[in-house]
Design a protein around this nucleic acid. Structure first.
Lengths: 294, 294
DNA sequence: CCCGATGATAACCATCGGTTATCGATCCGG
DNA sequence: CCGGATCGATAACCGATGGTTATCATCGGG
């Protein structure tokens, strides 16, 4: 069975005229006649009654035609879909985000991707930088959001998205809450609520370096994620350093938020992916950063 | 799009091994590699991740595979069906029968055809010899039952099925009902109930010739079909000549049936069809006569 | 470190789909 | 009744392409 022959058959069936059908197919008439004849030989029965004056479908042809049309349509659809998937306009894309990302530039990226490629089935999972990278390496994710820096890794490409401002969350009555702007040095000696380093080692170290100059702060409590951290702050356990956009979406009673004086310390956001094994849609996703980031 | 390439793709996807897939397809491995590569070029993205040690589907390949399988299955089904129709094992067959046929050899033929070719959609229509031939010539029927003789007609082939015995239907009290066996000469001068000659001219003339020696009988009533004829007989209007098997299925109170003494006069039954334009199933139908008739 | 397995590549060949030229049949107008 | 026009079939030829064999490159394992 050959789709080309079926196409030829359908064209002749539509036109009931070999000359016109050949023209529509952009081939010469003899070739068309030959191929239809081959198809008839394959099936074992004529599909057309021909006279030099009239072409008509035989019963066999009449029965075959609708099925042939359907098959051709299915083939075209398959090809179209395959091309779309190959071009990254359709298919599945697994993205691992981080808890601190959805409210910042990451949300913007995901939203614009969804708007631009609605046919892509986007599977979003929330994790931490460290775990996300494991998932990426294990092939369970196509693109992951990370908090840089992340150690160099063979086959993994990191695309920097931008920086986000850090802020300080304070218990409502904290003495530093009296200041409108804070300096890193103000934090020295304060009780701090933090989170596990392995969630995002790069970010963790960067915060320590930028704010405490490499001398570790006094961590009086470690909570598993931002929300729990803020709850601890509200309870007066200590202060916490957080991402500005993130704390905005987690407004807690009993927590005062103070920005740093310019230049405010920041933490970065980046995408990591493996171009060699990523589906085409991943390239589209990463490609959008050039658009939204500019 | 080429079904062969899709087949190749599916084979490799099944085996995840070019060598084995090539063997299954009965081609050499390089050709398989080439064609898969062509397919990938057509779609614009690789379908497999290859290393010299491992072959795996890419995301694109994973998405494409089920659709490809379905399309191939549909193509195979189409081919199978087309072959079946071409071979007369499936499709549609329009058969025009006659009112007097279903109870005789015709029923046997139709039944055995149905049993043998259940996938053929048999459309049965009941008519008369004359009208059936018109339908056949007009292309509205594929095979028709007729009461021979029928005039020779270009492109129409007539296959004789056999003869059926004629009997006489008499009003219950008729004087001839006293005899167990009748002779044609007994009918001379009797009142006769008949039916329109144009329904089956050949049969009509043959009955007149065989029973009345060419001198037309005294037709006192003409009814449109057998059933009405018998009703008229029951009412005592006259006697009627009928087909033995037919009168058996139309047993009327008030009607006595008498056979002729051997050799009983008969009327024939035949099939007519147009081999040049008939669907393959028509040939199968006609072909069965050789089987059941022997 | 070499060997075996596996896919890719190179070079060649045959098949087949398509082309042009031409034929044969049918219908139509004069 | 004949000549021309229409249309599909046929013949002969050609080039693309799918398939072949031989060989290479890479990678994993003993």
């Amino acid at each position: 069975m050959d789709l080309r022959r079926l196409r030829y058959f359908c064209a002749v069936a539509d036109e009931l005229h070999f000359g016109r059908a050949a023209e529509r197919l952009s081939v010469a008439q003899p070739g068309l006649s030959q191929q239809v004849k081959v198809l008839e030989a394959e099936l074992g029965a004529p599909l057309f009654e021909r006279s030099s004056r009239r072409v008509a479908l035989t019963e066999v042809g009449r029965v075959l035609y609708p099925d042939a049309r359907a098959l051709l349509a299915a083939a075209d659809a398959l090809e179209e879909r395959a091309r779309a998937v190959a071009a990254g306009r359709a298919g599945r894309l697994r993205v691992h985000t981080t808890r601190s990302a959805p409210s910042g530039p990451a949300a913007e990226l995901v939203d614009s991707f969804r708007a631009r490629y609605p046919a892509v089935d986007l599977e979003l999972v929330t994790g931490f930088t460290g775990w996300n990278l494991e998932e990426l390496r294990a092939g369970r994710s196509d693109v992951v959001f990370v908090r840089p820096p992340v150690g160099p890794d063979a086959g993994v490409e990191v695309v920097y998205l931008g920086d986000e401002e850090l802020v300080v969350a304070l218990p409502a009555g904290h003495r530093l809450a009296a200041q409108r702007r804070l300096h890193p040095t103000d934090l020295e000696g304060e009780d701090v609520v933090s989170w596990p380093r392995r969630n995002a080692p790069g970010m963790h170290d960067r915060i320590e370096t930028e704010l405490w100059g490499g001398r570790p702060p006094r961590v009086v409590r470690e909570e598993p994620d931002d929300e729990q951290v803020l709850r601890a702050v509200a309870a007066g356990i200590g202060l916490a350093v957080m991402i500005g956009t993130r704390v905005g979406s987690l407004r807690f009673p009993g927590v005062a938020v103070r920005r740093f004086a310019a230049p405010a310390p920041t933490v970065g956001l980046a995408l990591a992916w493996r171009p060699s094994v990523a589906p085409p849609s991943a390239a589209r996703f990463v490609g959008l950063t050039g658009v939204t980031g500019s």
